[in-house]
Simulated scan of single mutants.
Amino acid sequence: MVVESDGLLDESCLGAAPEPQEAVRIRLDMPRTDDLADIVFLANNHKIAANLANMPHPFSLENAKQLVARAQASRGNNATFAIRLNVTGRFIGIAKYGEMEPGSPVHIGYWLGEPFWGQGLATEAVHALVDHAFSHGTMAELSGACRVTNPASRRILVKSGFQYRDQSMIRSLGAGGAVPIERYSLERAVWSSLKQWGRSA
C-alpha cells in the first residue's frame, strides 16, 4: 500500500524523548547511515513519490544522507523514525511527525517500501507513531492527509483514529503537479479515549 505524507514537515527527531514502543512486527527507531542502501532502494520508487509532496524522484544517495542527517537533529514537536522489521531490524520505511508551520497542527507522514505493502505494517507503524507523539509531545491534535486516489493510506488513517475533515490540493514533486488530497485529524482527547477503550476491551 502506498502511504501518504504531505512532505512539508522537516524530517527532524525529538531526540530527548524515548523511542516508540515496539509493535507486533515492526519497531520505530533512528534512521542510520548503514540504512542508506535500503533507503535509496525503497525510496527510489515513483509509486511512492507520487503519493508524497516533497519526495524527489529519482531518489539519490545524497537525498538519503540528507534524510538521515535531518532525522538526527532535535527540535520541538518533531520526530522522524525508521520503520524496521522486528525480526531482522531491516529498514522498510519512514514514519514522522512535525509542525508544517508555527501554530498549525502537528502533521504525521509515513511511507513504506513497495515489497512491504499490503501486510498491515504501515498501520502498526502509524499506531506507534501516534502513541509516541501524544505521549512525548505537547500537541493537542495531529493532522494527516492522503491523496484521494490512495485508499490504502485512507484506511491507515481511519484505523488509527483519524477523522475526515475536508479536501484540499497540494503540489506533489513526484506527481509533477497539484493533486487533490483528503485531510484528517486526531485530537489528543479522542486518542486518550481510544487507548482507554483498548485497555478495557
Rank of each mutant, 00 (worst) to 15 (best):
A145P: 00
T138G: 13
T149R: 00
A50I: 00
Y110L: 12
R199D: 10
A133N: 01
I92Y: 03
Y97F: 15
A53D: 01
E22W: 12
A122L: 06
A128H: 12
V87N: 12
A37V: 13
P56Y: 14
L42F: 15
T123H: 12
A175K: 04
R25D: 12
E101V: 12
G89P: 07
D38Q: 11
K47T: 04
L61V: 13
S60T: 15
K65H: 14
I170R: 04
V158G: 08
K47V: 04
S5C: 09
H132G: 05
R171A: 13
Q66H: 13
S135V: 04
A175F: 06
S193I: 00
A122S: 14
M30C: 07
L28N: 04
G177S: 12
D166W: 09
I108D: 04
E99S: 15
V68M: 07
M169E: 10
F134Q: 00
I48L: 07
R25F: 03
M100C: 07
L112N: 08
E99G: 07
P18S: 08
G198W: 08
R171M: 07
G198H: 11
M139Q: 15
G15V: 05
G177V: 11
L194M: 12
S193T: 09
L157V: 14
P105H: 11
Y184R: 02
V106R: 04
A73Q: 14
I48N: 03
A23Q: 12
A128D: 06
R32Q: 13
L52R: 10
E11M: 11
T80H: 02
F81K: 00
H107Q: 11
L142A: 14
Q119I: 02
M100Q: 09
V40L: 09
E124L: 05
L28Q: 01
A43I: 02
G120F: 11
R171I: 13
M55N: 07
E99H: 06
R84F: 13
L173F: 13
H127S: 03
E4K: 00
H127C: 04
L194I: 08
L186D: 14
W197Q: 12
I170D: 00
D34L: 12
F162Q: 09
V106G: 08
N78V: 03
L194K: 04
G76S: 11
V40E: 14
V148Y: 02
E124T: 11
E124K: 07
F134H: 01
I83T: 06
L142R: 11
L121Y: 12
S185W: 01
L85M: 10
D131C: 06
E22R: 08
A82L: 03
I156K: 01
N44M: 05
A95D: 06
L186C: 15
A128P: 10
R32I: 02
Q196D: 07
S74A: 14
Y97M: 08
R70C: 13
G103W: 10
A201F: 11
Q163G: 15
E101Y: 14
F162N: 13
A95Q: 02
P180K: 09
Q119W: 04
L121W: 05
G98D: 02
L61C: 03
Q196A: 07
E182Y: 06
P151A: 03
P105L: 05
G15W: 06
E124S: 06
T138P: 01
T80L: 07
R84E: 06
D166E: 06
N54D: 09
I108K: 02
D131M: 02
P18A: 13
W197V: 09
R90D: 11
P102L: 02
G89E: 03
I48A: 00
G93F: 09
Y164C: 01
E141Y: 02
